[in-house]
């Protein structure tokens, strides 16, 4: 049975705006329209899209916070907006910027409280705490009130809190935003491992393509409330025509470099930008440029997720 099943789900909001002294005009915003997808147990899905595309609205409907305007959805066999408190035992949520922990409580107290609230058996709780403390390096933080934790520390604390009751599904909203490289990789490793060992199903929204590349077997792209792509990362690059960019600083300004397999997209004095397919190797390109020019410095820009989405969107404009 699918862990998450979403069929033709829509969600619109009616906004009221003041127009004149007494009059108010209303207009309807379609945050999500006719969304359909299924997620199998153990899948890790990257859910991406520009700001305001409908990501949070979807997550809120999947957790039971928001009632959909139309369509059907089930998570772990429950209808979220009807059976919200039963579903709560089966899901974990990390809200990204906003902590779900108690601001004034030390982490340890928050966890003990969660144990009681979720009625986690003592043995299970001890085992999970031991695992999370080790993998997320929480030992030194347990006695610190949440408000005194750094963003990265707090995020680790929040993720442990979301997984403490062994949920089947976890929703992670921007789990690595603002984290340093070490924290990011530790967190990703932790999620990979939990996914492998427990078959955790995860949906994560992110702006960081590395998160997707390292964690997700599948990507869903939403834009203007519609699912515009659903497939694996390779297919996303293929559809989006993702390109990397070689930035070279030459010793002196020249005409745009002309090399087969790359387009010179921008020239600024001695600096030139050469776009090439993401799956191609940069080495022969660098060699080709070096053969004909004197390179002072170079760097490679990874494809930007927004860029990929924009390409998908312009490639297949939605009807209407």
């Amino acid at each position: 049975m699918a862990m998450i099943e979403v069929r033709d789900v829509s969600r619109s909001f009616v906004l009221r705006r003041k127009s004149g002294r007494w009059r108010r005009t209303t207009h309807t915003v379609h945050a999500v329209r006719d969304l359909s997808f299924t997620v199998e147990p153990g899948e890790m899905v990257g859910y991406i899209g520009p700001n305001g595309a409908g990501k949070s609205t979807t997550i809120k409907m999947l957790t039971g916070i928001l009632v959909p305007s139309g369509g059907e959805l089930t998570v772990a066999g429950f209808t979220p907006y009807v059976e919200r408190t039963q579903l709560a035992h089966r899901i974990g949520v990390v809200f990204g910027q906003r902590t779900a922990l108690w601001w004034d409580l030390p982490l340890r107290d928050s966890y003990e409280l969660l144990q009681r609230i979720y009625r986690i058996p003592a043995a299970r709780y001890r085992k999970n705490m031991a695992t999370f403390t080790e993998l997320l390096d929480l030992a030194a933080l347990l006695d610190t009130p949440v408000r005194q934790l750094s963003l990265g520390q707090r995020m680790r604390g929040d993720i442990a809190a979301a997984l403490l009751h062994d949920p089947d599904v976890v929703y992670l909203d921007e789990p690595t935003i603002g984290l340093d490289v070490v924290s990011k990789s530790r967190l990703r490793e932790f999620l990979r491992r939990t996914n492998r060992e427990r078959g955790l199903t995860a949906i994560l929204t992110t702006h960081d393509l590395d998160d997707i590349e390292q964690l997700c077997s599948r990507v869903m792209v939403i834009d203007h409330g519609r699912l515009v792509f659903d497939g694996d990362l390779g297919a996303l690059h293929a559809v989006g025509g993702a390109r990397r960019t070689l930035v070279v600083d030459l010793s002196e300004p020249t005409d745009p470099i002309a090399i087969p397999g790359a387009d010179t997209v921008k020239v600024e004095g001695p600096r030139q930008w050469l776009a090439f397919p993401a799956e191609a190797s940069a080495a022969p390109l660098v060699a080709a440029v070096a053969a004909s020019h004197d390179i002072a410095d170079l760097s490679i820009l990874e494809p930007d997720i927004e860029d990929v989405i924009t390409r998908i969107y312009t490639a297949a404009p939605p009807p209407g």
């Binding site: 916070i65 709560a88 035992h89 949520v93 902590t99 779900a100």
Partner: peptide, 23 residues
């Protein structure tokens, strides 16, 4: 306003009880 009510809504306890006992 702060959006922290959502955190209460994903816990297996009534929001009313959580609000009453809050701090």
């Amino acid at each position: 306003r702060l959006g922290t009510l959502d955190a209460m809504m994903v816990r297996p306890v009534s929001v009313y009880v959580q609000m009453c006992a809050d701090e």
